[in-house]
């Protein structure tokens, strides 16, 4: 029984990482209507900036985090203005291609600057895990649960109840109509990228302590996050977190009780199965594409 519970806890901790990364993906999807494949690499660059501040410049942890988030805000905004804005009127496929290219460019540049060896990244809390009746759960996992919930809640409130949030959603749904309604869609687009970058940076600095930091560290999490987001329903924020958690637990149970080698095969097969039954994911609503 303790083994089962520990497997569940391990799965939940991993799932929390997937869910956190998935949040960034769905948030961008909601505000721009497209998938940002550069999300993981943006997170990686921001995390390396944090690493440079912490390890080389010896900036205190809290201040480093604030600086990283500020950097992310500017970084996302800059990427949008320089790369995505000219493509705003292009089909989504072209935009997605650009994010893929951007991911590779960021990865290559980061490798040149910081090298490809793994680095340790400081955990926000660290220390010994909580232990109870033979089970262990790290404090940082709990923190990640908390922060994910906080992000879901604040994004939900933002999208639902603020004018800016409504404007963002409107822009994603129909840019032309939004513009006619007087929404500065360029600014809206820029804002959603800035927010996406901040979300990615948050995910990066929280995930890196448990995976180690190297230019590819988010690629591995990113695939799982993507699967989790699809599973939960790409259009739903709580769905993304739930999908991530579900995938984490599933992997852990498969590894614990079926086969360690087939962990991913089993998990992804099950996801496919779920999607056959519910193509819009666990919490998503059927897409109504307006033409």
């Amino acid at each position: 029984m303790a083994i089962l519970l520990q497997n569940l806890l391990g799965g939940l901790s991993a799932g929390a990482l997937y869910g956190l990364a998935a949040l960034g993906l769905t948030a961008v999807f909601q505000t721009t209507g497209m998938v940002n494949f550069a999300q993981g690499d943006m997170a990686m660059v921001c995390t390396f900036v944090g690493f440079t501040l912490l390890s080389y410049m010896k900036v205190p942890y809290g201040l480093s985090l604030l600086l990283v988030l500020a950097f992310a805000l500017g970084f996302g905004s800059l990427l949008e203005r320089g790369l995505m804005r000219p493509l705003m009127r292009q089909p989504h496929v072209s935009q997605i291609m650009v994010t893929l290219g951007l991911a590779m460019i960021l990865n290559g540049i980061a490798g040149q600057i910081w090298g490809f060896e793994p680095h340790a990244f400081k955990a926000p809390l660290g220390g010994d895990p909580y232990r109870f009746v033979g089970l262990a759960l790290s404090k940082d996992s709990l923190l990640i649960f908390g922060i994910s919930a906080l992000i879901v809640l604040s994004l939900f409130l933002f999208f639902k109840f603020t004018l800016a949030g409504t404007a963002l959603r409107a822009t994603a749904q129909n840019a032309t109509a939004a513009k006619l309604m007087g929404i500065p869609i360029g600014m809206a687009f820029n804002m959603s990228w800035a927010v996406a970058a901040v979300l990615s940076a948050t995910a990066g600095v929280l995930i890196a302590p448990s995976t180690t930091l190297d230019p590819n560290f988010m690629a591995e999490v990113g695939i799982k996050a993507f699967a989790g987001a699809i599973l939960g329903g790409f259009s739903s924020l709580p769905g993304a977190v739930l999908g991530g958690l579900f995938l984490g637990v599933l992997e852990s149970l498969v590894a614990g009780y079926i086969s360690t080698e087939l962990k991913s095969v089993f998990s992804f097969s099950l996801i496919l199965l779920v999607l056959v039954v519910r193509p819009y994911g666990l919490l998503g609503s059927p897409a109504r594409k307006k033409v």
Binding site: G11, S13, Y18, E220, S252, E261, S264
Partner: peptide, 20 residues
């Protein structure tokens, strides 16, 4: 005998298996 894949992010189930 516990195999992992290079893309694995989470190794908690593996550690548990060896402990068990």
């Amino acid at each position: 005998e516990v195999a992992y894949n290079p893309a694995d992010v989470d190794v908690s189930a593996y550690a548990l298996k060896m402990k068990e």
